[in-house]
Design a protein around this nucleic acid. Structure first.
Length: 581
RNA sequence: GGCUCCGUAGCUCAACUGGAUAGAGCACCUGCCUUCUAAGCAGGCGGUUGCAGGUUCGACUCCUGCCGGAGUCGCCA
């Protein structure tokens, strides 16, 4: 149930009646949204301003033509023309109150569900960390963002597949094999001295070596065996970490398998048949010339035809395919499986790669598929404001597991979604675990726990109060502004879900949860000064039941939002206090 | 030097993808808190959205050029 959409559809119908020649494109631009300023009413539409050009009349004149029809839409109590031609609409409270039984019937799993996506198959790829070491907090952010984005898109009606692409081919895997071999020799008693340059120095490889020796003994002569063992071991560690974070994938796709299956060749053939591949010489990069630059003819993809800045090479000088060529194969693989929309979550250091990847997908699908590449920025981990440096190369990075053990998955998931993914995130151990309203995780959980506490008292007073019963409760006595503010806020959730899904911005859900928590805390606090605003009023069962229904729907709404983020809502905070103590 | 992302209150960040008077929290100031529910509450202060142009009914948002920060720049992934 999306009241904004319902009204929007009514308005579209009305516009069509008043302006029969209106085009679909124009109609699509006519939106209905909650105004920023509540005094403007409950909803505002830009219809008159959008139609102005086609109608050949000034916006306010167009608005005049729509007012009468708008007033007849069910639930509408007032229609005003304002500013440059906005039409403000007020609805009777009952129209909004319908959301409460809807929330209670839908429950935390389904409130906010939408069919916007029309079951469009979408592949969301995230994490995809190389199986060469443990996950870092940077990976954690990408994992959480990707997981929440996948949840969000699924909630908005897309058919989502969650993919982890295993980079188990290429040079870094050979480096891993060398490094592990060294550690195996060490485990067998050899003094290996300093780890030579060009090897991964991380101590975690000792674990790999130890496990290898336990399984295969002292024979490390079979390079393929060492490599396969190391990858499997480290990938398993990664899966354990992800599992504890509640980050799930539907499938793990192996790069080595894609290469082995000849997918690169078939992808390149597809491009060749479109005349998009040629032999040529690239201009050297403008400005600073690399020291070892030499002109060379190579195999190039005409990515400039699709918005890229230069054509991109597909073969290295030794004839093997570039990373880009392999990725084209990977995207081609996804496309062939039927996905029309590809989302690939990558680190911000891949920013320069987005254009060519998008152009490749556009080219090989002949425009039928589209790639989005959200960039996830760095995490700065601090402790009481003091930065904790991380550097994967030095092997002193902060691992996902370090952070998980320190603050727990719920805190990580929520806090990492309190920023737009493209913004660097400061994550302060002290701040995200403190029990105060300055900590958004706590603030939201506290609101949910307070709702649960009210429910406990309510049950003691009135007996069992299942949701399906509360859904039938009369809400006629809800008339205070604090109550209606919450009802209206809850009613926007389906809209927030759709917009966040389209924008692929799950942080909006976290902000919404904070908004609901804030409005609820405000209501709760009013009850301190004004006894008539308590939830449970002795001797007034009608009012109490109506408020209980609203409190419960607040809890369900917060739970539904947290569900998208992947954070379990807490019934009470006491247990957390004990953990912290 | 080219490209990408970013620049919003003193600080950390939002702003419904072009909508109305740009919003929260922290900090600061004022008042409240011997509790049906204070791990606080109510209010106040705070802005030429980096700068300069442009597009239009309307710009934090789109375009151009500067300034500043981060990332990246054929044979790493």
């Amino acid at each position: 149930m999306n009241i904004f959409k319902t009204i929007q559809q009514d308005i579209h119908k009305l516009v069509h009646r008043v302006f029969p020649s209106v085009t679909d494109a124009t109609l699509a631009r006519i939106s209905v949204e909650p105004p920023r300023d509540a005094t403007h009413g409950d909803m505002a539409t830009n219809a008159a301003m959008i139609l102005s050009k086609e109608a050949g009349k000034p916006p306010r004149a167009v608005a005049e033509m729509l007012v009468a029809g708008l007033a007849e839409i069910p639930g509408v109590t007032r229609v005003d023309i304002a500013g440059p031609g906005f039409i403000n609409i007020a609805l009777k409270p009952d129209a909004f109150k319908l959301i409460v039984p809807h929330v209670l019937e839908s429950g935390p799993k389904h409130f906010g569900d939408s069919d916007l996506g029309g079951k469009t198959p979408v592949n969301v790829e995230y994490v995809s960390a190389n199986p060469t070491g443990p996950l870092t907090v940077g990976h954690a952010r990408g994992a959480i963002f990707g997981d929440a984005t996948a949840n969000l898109m699924a909630k908005a009606g897309f058919a989502v597949n969650r993919e982890y692409y295993i980079n188990d081919a290429g040079r870094q895997v050979e480096v891993l094999t060398d490094s592990v071999t060294l550690r195996i020799r060490e485990a067998l008693g050899e003094n290996i001295g300093e780890i030579p340059a060009g090897h991964y120095p991380g101590e975690y490889l000792k674990d790999v070596a130890k496990a290898y020796v336990e399984k295969h003994g002292s024979d490390f002569s079979d390079r393929a065996q060492v490599r396969a063992f190391a990858i499997a071991f480290l990938l398993n560690e990664i899966k354990i970490d992800l599992g504890e974070m509640g980050v799930v994938h539907d499938e793990f796709v192996s790069e080595a398998k894609i290469l082995g299956d000849g997918e690169v060749e078939s992808a390149l053939e597809a491009l060749t048949s479109q005349g998009l591949i040629y032999q040529g010489v690239l201009e050297p990069p403008k400005g600073k010339l690399p020291d070892d630059w030499e002109e060379r003819e190579q195999t190039l993809f005409k990515s400039t035809q699709f918005g890229d800045d230069v054509d991109r090479p597909l073969k290295k000088s030794d004839g093997s395919s570039t990373y880009f060529a392999n990725d084209i194969a990977h995207f081609f693989h996804q496309y062939k499986k039927g996905y029309k929309k590809l989302v690939c979550v990558v680190g911000a250091d891949h920013g320069g790669y987005v254009k060519r990847a998008k152009s490749a997908v556009k080219a090989m699908s002949a425009g039928a598929a589209e790639l989005d590449m959200p960039l996830v920025a760095i995490v700065h981990v601090t402790e009481n404001g003091n930065p904790v440096r991380m550097s994967k190369r030095a092997g002193t990075f902060i691992t996902l597991r370090d952070m998980l053990e320190r603050v727990g998955a719920g805190v990580m998931r929520f806090i990492m979604l309190t920023r737009d993914a493209g913004q660097t995130l400061e994550f302060d151990y002290a701040r995200v675990t403190e029990q105060s309203k300055d900590n958004p995780y706590f603030y939201v959980q506290y609101a949910h726990a307070r709702c649960c506490s009210v429910m406990k008292h309510a049950v003691a007073m009135f007996g069992d109060l299942p949701d399906d019963m509360l859904a039938k409760t009369s809400l006629a006595s809800l008339e205070r502004p604090e109550e209606m503010a919450l009802v209206k806020l809850i009613a926007t959730f389906p809209r927030v879900v759709e917009q966040a899904a389209v924008a692929e911005e799950p942080h909006r859900i976290a902000y919404f949860a904070q908004d609901v928590a804030s409005a609820f805390h405000a209501w709760w606090n009013k009850g301190r000064d004004d006894g008539t605003l308590r939830f449970l009023i002795e001797g007034n069962k009608d009012l109490s039941m109506a408020r209980i229904a609203l409190v419960r729907s607040v809890a369900v709404t917060i739970a539904a939002a947290l569900n998208v983020i992947g954070v379990p809502p807490l019934q009470e905070l006491r247990s957390e206090v004990e953990i912290a103590a």
